[in-house]
Design a binder for these strands. Structure first.
Length: 206
DNA sequence: AGCCAGGCTACCG
DNA sequence: CGGTAGCATGGC
């Protein structure tokens, strides 16, 4: 077990050397390596939340195009999202796929965001929102609210399996692994998850 | 020309 | 309950 902890901690350094700082979460298409200050305001926070929805089972490349469309129409704020029709909204986010579902999800999230204005959401509250599951909730808590929450995704499962020879697919179990092993530091969790994605992308091709 | 991407919901047995 | 079809575009 001690050995396992050490392996996981070493993996962070290893990936950092290999991939360098990732600069997550991107704001307006730009990454800021080694800068963990975003979101700097409410608009950036809402942009991250929108991105977290749009990227569900979808490559970030496709999401960027949708976000660009939303900027151009001044839609990176909850009130604007709520005032546009479902048809127009889904049209703007078409490149992200599942656009009918996601248009609805964006509205549900916008409503939640307005209702809890200036409040930090709890994980259990986020999970009750239609369209937000564990990974999206955790991404929002980590990247939009800087909470020390470790995000688990398909890449994480893959990386843990190939580097640590652990083959669980259970979200909670995987998450617990990281909590038991790493200090609760949101910058560390931010970088580590981004590095796992960088590594996971390579892993899938080989 | 398939297969997959920074998942989630609804429904099935 | 656990398992899975459906959602849908763009890139490789």
């Amino acid at each position: 077990m001690q050995n396992f902890n050490k392996k996981l901690q070493n993996l962070y350094q290893e990936f950092l050397t290999k991939h360098d700082y990732q600069g997550w979460w991107p704001i307006k298409g730009r990454y800021f390596p080694k800068d963990y200050s975003s979101p700097k305001n409410s608009e950036e926070r809402f942009e991250i939340i929108i991105g977290a929805i749009l990227t569900q089972n979808t490559s970030w490349k496709n999401v960027e195009k949708s976000l660009q469309n939303l900027y151009e129409n001044n839609l990176i704020n909850p009130k604007a999202i709520l005032s546009i029709s479902n048809e127009s909204l889904s049209d703007l986010i078409k490149s992200s796929g599942y656009y009918n579902q996601k248009a609805k999800k964006l509205k549900t999230v916008a409503e939640f965001y307005l209702k809890n204005k200036n409040k930090i959401p709890l994980r259990e509250q986020l999970l009750k929102v239609w369209g937000i599951g564990k990974e999206t909730a955790d991404s929002i808590l980590l990247y939009a609210y800087k909470h020390p929450i470790f995000v688990i995704d398909a890449y994480t499962e893959n990386v843990v399996r190939s580097y640590l020879n652990l083959k669980t697919q259970d979200y909670d179990e995987l998450q617990e692994l990281f909590y038991k092993t790493l200090p609760k530091d949101y910058k560390l969790y931010n970088e580590f998850h981004a590095l796992i994605v960088a590594e996971g992308k390579i892993l899938n091709k080989t």
